[in-house]
Design a protein around this nucleic acid. Structure first.
Length: 962
RNA sequence: GCCCCGGUGGUGGAAUUGGUAGACACGCAGGACUUAAAAUCCUGUGACCCGCAACGGUCGUAACGGUUCAACUCCGUUCCGGGGCACCA
């Protein structure tokens, strides 16, 4: 009776499907547990071994919770709108809906293969009109709401209109919005009113810069732009301003920050989010510009108004509105050239640039306190979207400013005395100010407040809280996304009056529309209805999908209140850190809005978040040689079907024409040429080595399977290989797992070879779920061996079942209960790798004890069921159980079976362990000291001396200080 | 550049709260079983030194420095790898 995993797994998957074993009911009588994975984008490459890492972890946890009596919601779906499908459509003409459908089918079959406990009845797909109907509906809620600063929450825009009608916009006096009275509001025409309301809507329209590629006639995503040119075709890319939709997430900045205190995310994650929000306090200060009689003012934001006397220059963003106005004639050309240069640069490049660049405008600002003239510069490191787009540079206190000053020979004022050495800027707040007018002699920390007060008093600026976070751009000039249920009449955006969903129309081609508009602008009927031609971005659908799973068939609501009250927050959310500041912030914001508007009863979506590490690919390379050769008859060829093993290719750095390494390779090539062209007598003259990715699936460790290689690439049927030690060794590199790098490993292949249970446990055994690591299939055998060994506790090849009903011994009970404790703890704390090793240990121990007792093995089966559900189900039923192991009761750990009365303590001398002593657990300090001093090893180390101190930590260790 | 994470034997990793570094596996080496292979089982396996022995010694958790009776764990500096930086998802 062998462990026939192929048959067992197929049978059980079939049984589970037929019996609806994973159906989740909205059974409100049971305690609930909501376990969620970040749903995947169904890419054409299918699932690779990196995807299931988190899915297996959550599956184990879900099954574990079910055994513990919870009603567990553990759904799966697809984030099926997105750029790759659209690009594929552009390339091949296939409708994204078609390819997406195919890809989803592949993903689902791959997922089912691994034996996950999803209730597919609850699946959601963001590109399904029945789903995006509600995405559009929520968008309209955002569009029809504003953020009430007083109540610190979203409210219907109708409320705001009422306020305008009765009190006008008096509150606006303290902000940058225009103030008006109730009467004035009533006088405004429709367009004026609409424009004002647009300044308050949570989803609003504005203008923003995009990566524009003229040659492709389209807007490009950041990762489609490489070094200022388009990734496809290498065309120039510039900034272009287009009308865009935004979400007013900045209004939620404070609540997003505060909410972090109520959720169980890692400190790193919380830190990333709060850094992204970037709350800072300081002041906005206005500086007069010298050359401007018009009274143009330069408004800067600074967190350090205390350093105002140390300002040696100003830097404004190249996009700053006053650039043209203040630039002097002499500097005009230089400024224009610089701005042209900056236009070709992405924001990322601008921030990452180490090289200092900038240009002087010729204009000077005036320090409002001492009248000092300060040169105004333009530099790319100041971004228009941050603060006011202008900074005051204080080189003695800021490294970046100091480098800039040094580079352009701008004299540096020292206001912090000895705290500044002229070499390195010092951002201290503890220095006593010098050269600082009325602030002289004050500690900076205190000067800060005094400076702000003075600035406000003089009316040259005001206290200001600033956020680094910007409002979220919420539109794309693309096809494959949710259409906005918005129409434009006379420049006024209005809610579309039809019945949702507003279905994405068919298009003939997926290319861009006119003037940088999306493909929808090519459809006459669409344009005729004055419908918005932008579509929503990828994160629209993913910002609320966790709510739809709760009640995915509901046609009347996005989710019934009863369902969301019951399932409530996601108890455990698993996904990668790459979503730290995108998806996780947007979904938190949407949840808060839905809560504010009374649609759900909680304002944080995810109670606990676990970040799974990324499984990287371990790529393999072959080194192709392109060589030139000649023979004595003057015949010359270029030949490129020779591959060098790694050891030779590694020498290429050292190679120079004519040196030893070079000649060695030439000889090897010449030899190979004599095999390919037997009578020609070619002599290799020169060569280049080109590393090429090779499919990792035909490489064993580092050794290339040449037969498989020839089979896979018939064009290399006659290729020659230069071996080392009789093998062809490949190069390797750790990279992202991707089809284009030929380093993807398909779980299907591993499941076919070792079974789903082995695959699941191996992925967990690889290491902590949170850690990133390159994939390596080596080692899976060990896990497979373990499952076979586990099987042999129950069944013998020849004798069949070997289970008996004898009473367990104390030793056996101890082994079992140690395992219960370890595995339960490890599962709870998400340490699945040590959990797996716990199973290995208990199996090894029971094998050594030759234990085949039902009373020991049956509880063990329940422990294993979440990790390896198929083998557990099979053995469970072989033991004669009529019920499903899925709903068995989790075994309870009992202390009494594992209790010890003594412990083998490590005894250290000066911190180094020298021996071991077994001592009763309830021993006192004095007893231990006496005992320790009689020990031979200790005596030897003491060498007759008296110990200075004996440290005894109960249940831990003993340390003798000499 | 900025923010976050990581670095432990030949390899993946363990050490949960500062308390025996290397659990559990892989690989490798040797052995048993077998006509043979597969499968399975047993033994050894961080480096170095001494030695008849070892339940003997020294070193060792990226590097350097610090705190402590005690540091993989805490602090500081540096190096390397990964993720994010607002239109990939």
């Amino acid at each position: 009776m062998e462990y026939d995993f192929r048959k067992i797994e197929k049978d059980w998957q079939k049984k589970w499907k037929e019996s609806n074993a994973y159906k989740v009911a909205n059974d409100f009588s049971k305690p609930k547990c909501y376990v969620l994975d970040m749903f995947p984008y169904p890419s054409g490459a299918g699932l690779h071994v990196g995807h299931p890492l988190g899915y297996i972890a959550s599956d184990i946890y879900s099954r574990y919770k079910r055994l513990k009596g919870f009603n567990v919601l553990h759904p799966m779906g697809f984030d099926s709108f997105g750029l790759p499908a659209e690009q594929y459509a552009l390339d091949t003409g296939q409708h994204p809906a078609e390819t997406t459908k195919k890809n989803i089918a592949t993903f689902k079959s791959q997922l089912d293969n691994i034996g996950f406990c999803y209730d597919w009845e609850r699946e959601v797909q963001t590109s399904d009109p029945n789903y995006y109907k509600w995405t559009q509906w929520i968008f309209l809620q955002l569009f029809n709401s504003y953020f009430d600063k007083k109540e610190n929450k979203a409210k219907p825009i109708a409320d705001l209109i009422k306020t305008f009608e009765t009190e006008g916009n008096l509150a606006a006096r303290s902000s940058q919005l225009t103030a008006f009275s109730a009467d004035e509001w009533k006088q405004f025409d429709e367009k004026q009113k609409a424009d004002i309301l647009m300044n308050h809507r949570l989803a609003f329209c504005g203008y923003g810069e995009v990566n524009w590629c003229e040659a492709l006639g389209t807007v490009l995503a950041n990762d489609e732009v490489v070094n200022g040119v388009s990734e496809r075709g290498g065309h120039p890319v510039v900034k272009k301003t287009l009308r865009q939709w935004y979400l007013r997430i900045t209004d939620y900045a404070d609540r997003l920050l505060e909410g972090l205190n109520t959720v169980d995310f890692s400190d790193a994650m919380k830190e990333m989010q709060s850094n992204w929000i970037g709350k800072s306090s300081g002041a906005e200060i206005e500086f007069g510009v010298k050359s401007q009689e018009s009274g143009a003012k330069l408004r800067v934001y600074t967190t350090r108004p205390d350093t105002i006397f140390g300002v040696d220059f100003m830097v404004i963003a190249p996009e700053y509105e006053l650039v043209e106005e203040i630039t002097t004639k002499e500097q005009q050309k230089a400024v224009e050239e610089y701005i042209t240069y900056v236009k070709s640069r992405s924001e990322r490049e601008r921030m990452a640039e180490k090289k200092i660049s900038g240009v002087f405008t010729g204009a000077y600002a005036k320090n409002p306190f001492n009248g000092r003239e300060i040169p105004i510069w333009i530099s790319e490191y100041v971004l228009a979207g941050y603060g006011t787009g202008a900074i005051m540079a204080v080189p003695c206190g800021d490294e970046r400013d100091l480098k800039f000053a040094k580079h352009f020979n701008i004299p540096v004022t020292n206001i912090i005395g000895t705290h500044f050495n002229g070499e390195e800027a010092n951002p201290t707040k503890d220095a006593i100010l010098e050269n600082s007018g009325f602030l002289d002699g004050l500690v900076m920390r205190e000067a800060l407040e005094i400076a702000i007060n003075k600035i406000e008093e003089l009316g040259i600026g005001k206290r200001k809280v600033n956020y680094k976070m910007r409002d979220a751009a919420f539109s794309r000039q693309r096809y494959w996304g949710e259409p906005f249920p918005i129409t434009w009449e006379d420049g006024i955006a209005k809610e579309w009056t039809g019945e949702l969903p507003l279905v994405l129309p068919e298009v003939e081609k997926y290319g861009p529309g006119p003037d940088g508009q999306g493909p929808l602008a090519n459809i006459p009927e669409w344009v005729a209805q004055e419908l918005e031609t932008n579509t929503m971005p990828g994160y629209a659908g993913s910002s609320w999908y966790f709510l739809r799973y709760m009640d995915n068939k509901n046609e009347k609501e996005f989710c019934s209140r009863a369902a969301s009250d019951y399932w409530n927050q996601v108890d455990l959310y698993i996904g990668g850190t790459e979503h730290a500041v995108g998806h996780l912030l947007y979904s938190r914001m949407w949840t808060k809005v839905l809560y504010d508007l009374g649609y759900i009863g909680f304002d944080e979506p995810f109670k606990r978040l676990v970040n799974q590490g990324m499984i990287q690919g371990s790529s393999r390379f072959v080194y192709r040689v392109i060589c030139k050769a000649m023979n004595n008859d003057g015949e010359g060829i270029e030949y490129n079907d020779i591959f060098l093993s790694k050891a030779f290719a590694d020498k290429r750095e050292k190679m120079e024409s004519g040196n030893n390494e070079w000649n060695e390779i030439l000889d090897l090539i010449t030899h190979k040429l004599s095999i390919v062209f037997p009578k020609k007598n070619f002599q290799a003259k020169g060569f280049t080595i080109i590393p090429q990715h090779v499919d990792v699936n035909i490489v064993d460790g580092f050794e290339l399977d040449i037969e498989a290689f020839r089979k896979l690439k018939p064009e290399f049927n006659n290729a020659e290989f230069i071996y080392e030690d009789g093998k062809y060794i490949c190069g390797s590199e750790v990279e992202k797992m991707s089809k284009s790098k030929f380093n993807t490993v398909n779980p299907d292949d591993l499941v076919a070879k070792y079974g789903a249970d082995t695959f699941r446990m191996y992925e967990m055994f690889l290491g902590p779920v949170e850690m990133s690591k390159p994939w390596d299939t080596k080692g899976i055998e060990g896990v497979h061996r373990f499952l076979k060994k586990f099987w042999r506790l129950f069944a013998d090849e020849t004798k069949g079942l070997i289970i008996n009903d004898e009473e367990p011994t104390a030793a056996e009970l101890k082994v079992l209960h140690n395992a219960i404790r370890k595995i339960e703890q490890d599962t709870e704390r998400f340490s699945f790798n040590t959990g797996v090793s716990g199973f290995m240990i208990v199996t090894n121990e029971l094998t050594d004890l030759k234990c085949h007792k039902r009373k020991i093995l049956e509880p063990l089966l329940i422990l294993l069921a979440p990790y390896a559900p198929h083998i557990a189900a099979e053995l469970w039923s072989l033991l004669g159980n009529a019920t499903a192991v899925l709903d068995a009761a989790y075994p309870t750990f009992e202390e009494k079976y594992v209790k010890e009365s003594s412990k083998a303590y490590p005894v250290a001398i000066n911190g180094k362990t020298r021996t071991e002593l077994t001592i009763a657990l309830d021993a006192t300090q004095q007893q231990v000291e006496e005992l320790v001093l009689t020990d031979e090893t200790v005596k030897k180390w003491l060498d007759g001396k008296q110990p200075k101190k004996i440290i005894y930590v109960k249940n831990k260790m003993i340390n003798i200080v000499i």
